[in-house]
């Protein structure tokens, strides 16, 4: 069991590193407390953030909010109803940490500047390279064995895994393969050959985007 703690997420080294451009955020930890101790206290909240939030949101979206604890609780309740698995004690830990880190009195949010070229690249498909020419039928078998337990038989997501149909990463094969091999959040990495990754891609691309149908 994780101890419920209300220290600041922002005191965490990893969060701080991810937002180096950001000014230091308010921490509820005593001023004299060594950073390492504060970080240890926040580790559970960071783990929840990684496991439950980052599949859909980068932290920048959280960092710009300036909300009371009651507002954060409502936001997280909505996210839970929309499929975020956070509940029980984890929910309390996360709510308290977000309220401490990104509360009403936190300083102004200074958005990072991204060159127009880098922004355009976010939306670009990339060549398949070594992952070209996969076989969707073989991909289906592989999918059923490794992915379906969490992402559902139809690929449209379940309590543990996100929807995979129509996702832009299906046209960014290198990112896709890195995700399958390295895992993310609650998802473990899978040893996957290029041929297997290509088959998985071919299968997932064959699933129709039914949004609005």
């Amino acid at each position: 069991m994780r101890p419920a703690r209300a220290a600041s997420l922002a005191a965490l080294g990893l969060v701080a590193a991810a937002c180096a451009a950001e000014r230091p955020l308010k921490s509820t930890a005593p001023a004299a407390a060594p950073v390492a101790a504060a970080a240890a206290a926040d580790a559970p909240a960071l783990e929840i953030l990684r496991n439950d939030c980052r599949g859909c949101h980068t932290e920048d979206l959280l960092r710009q909010q300036r909300l009371t604890e009651a507002q954060w609780a409502k936001v997280l309740d909505k996210m839970h109803r929309w499929g975020a698995p956070t509940e029980g004690e984890d929910l309390q830990v996360l709510t308290a940490n977000l309220a401490a880190s990104y509360g009403r009195d936190s300083g102004p949010f200074a958005p990072e500047r991204l060159s127009a070229e880098a922004a355009a690249d976010l939306f670009r498909s990339r060549p398949d390279g070594a992952l070209a020419g996969g076989n969707a039928v073989r991909g289906l078998a592989l999918y059923g064995e490794r992915c379906a337990p969490c992402h559902a038989e139809d690929g449209r997501g379940g309590p543990l895994g996100l929807n995979l149909v129509g996702r832009r990463s299906l046209h960014r094969a290198d990112e896709f393969a890195a995700l399958v091999r390295g895992g993310a959040g609650r998802m473990p990495g899978f040893e996957t050959t290029d041929a297997e990754a290509a088959d998985l891609l071919a299968y997932l691309r064959s699933l129709p985007n039914l949004a609005g149908r």
Binding site: R54, C56, H57, T58, D60, L61, Q64, P111, E112, R113, L114, S115, A116, E117, A119, A120, L122, F123
Partner: peptide, 30 residues
């Protein structure tokens, strides 16, 4: 500067810097 302000990378939410609101047409890349 041809830049956008990042409100979130995932999902993509990018703002146009205010200096661009001095003209009739906002270029597509910003």
């Amino acid at each position: 500067a041809r830049e956008l302000l990042v409100h979130s990378l995932r999902p993509e939410n990018l703002a146009t810097p205010i200096e661009w609101f001095d003209r009739l047409i906002t270029p597509t890349d910003v």
